[in-house]
């Protein structure tokens, strides 16, 4: 059976790959590729956030019948990452590689500690709460993501 842990952790790795690709293009100051690569990375992240914020999180909170502290923190960290994306985009537009690489270093730490918490705690918790309904929630998440 498909689990939340597998599906969303794999999506994290996909985002990591796109992150590394964009960073490499910027480091080489290949700005044409950097533009596309950064846009792809950002789109993948937004898709991931949307799947969580609009499908997974509300479903879990509904099942639990209460607001869950960690979910609030996850949403807050998504917001923090979005703020960094805005600055990163500016640096791509201005072709400022030093600024981009400083921001990407920062984003990576923020993103990895966030992913770690999700993969070790929130996703296993979601699988426990959802049990057999996990596949249908995954399907709903993917549909939501594809609409973007």
């Amino acid at each position: 059976m498909e689990t939340i842990v597998q599906t969303l952790s794999q999506d994290h790795s996909r985002c990591d790959q796109l992150f590394a690709k964009a960073e490499e293009s910027v480091a080489k100051t290949d700005w044409k590729r950097a533009n596309t690569d950064f846009a792809n990375f950002r789109a993948a992240m937004e898709r991931h956030f949307t799947m969580e914020e609009e499908v997974l999180f509300p479903t879990i909170e509904k099942r639990a019948g209460q607001r869950i502290g960690p979910i609030r923190v996850m949403r807050m960290e998504h917001q923090q990452m979005r703020e960094v994306f805005v600055e990163m985009e500016e640096s791509v537009t201005q072709q400022d590689s030093d600024e981009y690489l400083g921001l990407s270093e920062t984003l990576l730490m923020l993103m990895q500690q966030h992913n770690g918490k999700e993969e070790h705690m929130l996703y296993p918790l979601s699988d426990r709460v959802l049990q057999h309904d996990a596949p249908s929630v995954i399907k709903e998440m993917q549909q939501k993501g594809d609409q973007l």
Binding site: Q80, E83, E87, E99, L101, G102, E105, T106
Partner: peptide, 28 residues
Amino acid sequence: IPFLVWLHLQNQQGNNPMKRIKVPNMKK
């Protein structure tokens, strides 16, 4: 160390709707 410094400044900034101070990134 750079990450903790950034994170705490960013969190402090979070309470400020004006957001006029730019928090330096880790490599700064």
